[in-house]
Design a protein around this nucleic acid. Sequence first.
DNA 1: CGTGCATTTGAGAAGAATCAATGCCCGTGG
DNA 2: CCACGGGCATTGATTCTTCTCAAATGCACG
Lengths: 260, 260
Amino acid sequence: MFPSHRLRDFSLLAAADVEALRTLGGPPVALPRHSIIRSEGATDRSAYLLVDGWVSSSMLLAGGERQILKLHLPGDMLGSTGMCLDHAIDTLAALTPVIVRKVPLAALGQLMAKSPRMAMFMLLSAQKERVALMDRVASNSRTSPTARMAFLLLDLHQRLSAIGQADHDSFEIAITQEQLGDIVGLTSVHVNRVLREMEREDLIQRHRRRVWIVDFDHFRTVARIPRRDMSVDPSWRILDTPDEDAQRQGPASSTASTAA
Amino acid sequence: MFPSHRLRDFSLLAAADVEALRTLGGPPVALPRHSIIRSEGATDRSAYLLVDGWVSSSMLLAGGERQILKLHLPGDMLGSTGMCLDHAIDTLAALTPVIVRKVPLAALGQLMAKSPRMAMFMLLSAQKERVALMDRVASNSRTSPTARMAFLLLDLHQRLSAIGQADHDSFEIAITQEQLGDIVGLTSVHVNRVLREMEREDLIQRHRRRVWIVDFDHFRTVARIPRRDMSVDPSWRILDTPDEDAQRQGPASSTASTAA
DNA sequence: CGTGCATTTGAGAAGAATCAATGCCCGTGG
DNA sequence: CCACGGGCATTGATTCTTCTCAAATGCACG
């Protein structure tokens, strides 16, 4: 059930590791939109593999404001920050109908103990998430609403492309403008005005939930933040062993969307 | 030279690991204020141990704006996100005179390969950094300037306390108001007004660079974001071996400032 | 006792939120 | 097949917040 097109992210892993990850979790569970997969503050020590659908990781602030910290797409692992927290920091909510597999953190820990390569994979995934969050901080704190939206749309397009859910120049946005606002830190009213303005300036086109990006190079300059190319540095291959190498899946990709 | 008071963060590590970390890096190097330790875009594959002083991790956006992503304090490891990037995402700049040790990422990798416990430590450190960034995203995107400053001041006090560089209710801010603004996403002018307003409302007191927090409980409600208690879950001790246990440094602490 | 950085203050402009309606799409049930 | 209702999207008017620009003041250090 784990999307095969996501396996490219796992090029550091041996086939056995990938299979272990697949079978690690519980059975795939389907949940309707608006389901709360896990609430912030929860003490349940487990993560989740997102098999299908979109999930938000969000915090509810003391004043009642909601901030979406990460939009999770199929293939992502949810809730792995729980390994350093007694109480979950974020709420995992289904923004669309979803399918998830529950993964006890203890099981993940045992897997990492058995497979150093898996531990390294988890470390790199966490580092990639850090990078994504750093970009988000910069975008939300220091750029115009238009730039924030552009950055978000480009990020979504890149990540959806990686899992075969985007066209060359367009993709479907499965969430509302209010939720877009909860990501970039704007009200839904202002998100709407920004999107319309982008349309008027011919930066994007829209129809129903689908968005077309007219000129990627130009749109990237609007976003202010460059695309990140994740590395698969050979020096990190030190954990390889010959027989495990033989099992490796496909070639290493130079770019990969995040999966921790 | 690695501050001994920081060792509490390393309670997951065996003594041998701590010693390895200490001796891993190059010699301690003293640098003056405003030194650039490493520029964004750099391809040099190494991290740094911050022995003394304050360092900013910042990004320069296409429009010329600067965003500080993390304020690093003594004991922190800088630049470990480089392990998933070909080009450094952030610039490391000395905000005060500093002392650092360079640590090649390859050496870190070898250490992790030899010591699964060290790999787990690095993973947990990265996760803690993710949590800190998630809080920063929420604070900067969704709270008032006053709340952002309160959150920053509380975070600084907690982290400085952990390394013995803060009083019970006060600490020295070693950076300018403009740099504070680059963290919370405000102009220096507005930072100044917020600080004065906090003083007028008796939330804080100031003299020179020292700041007193009048009422911590109240100030935390102003900050809107709760303090995070990092966990040292026993289930993550699976990597322990008896003889390594005997070497462990001190008791596990339930809270720890970030160190990745 | 300058000199240079940093803080403080003021006035006005720009930006985003808020409040309040209205319009649109789509599924449901009569 | 159409009326109805609910969730979203869109729009306008107004208010509040924050930035920008500019200048003055204060402070530390040589």
